[in-house]
Amino acid sequence: MTDQILFQGLQYGIYILEGVLCLLLARQGARRRRLGLCVYVTLLFVLDGVARPAVLDHFGRTSMQFAYFYWLTDVALAMGAFLLTCSFFRRACAHEAKLWQLVRLLLIFVFILVLVISALSLTRHYTHLYTVFIVEFSQNLYFSCLVLNTLLFIMIQQLAIEDDELGLLVCGMGLQFAGEAAGLALLHLTSGGDFARAIFSFLNPICTLGMLVTWIYAVTRAPQTVPVDTLVGKQTALVEAVD
């Protein structure tokens, strides 16, 4: 009973934060650099905040229809997350055309790799499409997003990109992917045991909450840091002016 109340509380918290983030992004206007984020947040709100509760309300939690719908929307969200990661890479490489060409090839390669690995899994589990295959495909896609996200984080540090909003968005995404991939891996390892299911049912909404809170922080009050070059430049200009 307490578990149910806590779970419902987390779910409603997520719906509220998804709505708030949608409103914040709409209020600040759709800037080109935030287009991917706007599309993903809208998709998240429509699928997770509107469609899933509607299907749940109509068919019930234990119905097959809800289970199919949940896992299909999970694949759609995983694909959306992958595309969002691609858009973050594009934003990070805004001034590096050659690097973007290389990164684009890497992203295409990773997606094909995930498809091939999951297709191989399908040949072994074609009778359990909605149980084994979809869980494994989502797990692989989330994990590849997590690896790509980490590469992006390292790239931001290495290229010293002064975009704190992007940094926080990447961190929030990392929290979500890491939690989701760990939960799915645990589910896969224990073949969907009760303990793993209980952990996954709480871990997933907690990570989503963490991501949404970080994104709201990023959109509303990302810390504005002064680039070191600018400071040095100003000091040099001041010294020159005094001289």
Binding site: Q139, F143, L146, T150, G174, L175, F177, A178, G179, A181, A182, L184, A185, L186, L189, C207
Partner: peptide, 11 residues
């Protein structure tokens, strides 16, 4: 198992 360990560390 590898995904579980790496994902937890990255979290």
């Amino acid at each position: 198992a590898l995904i579980l360990i790496l994902s937890t560390a990255l979290f």
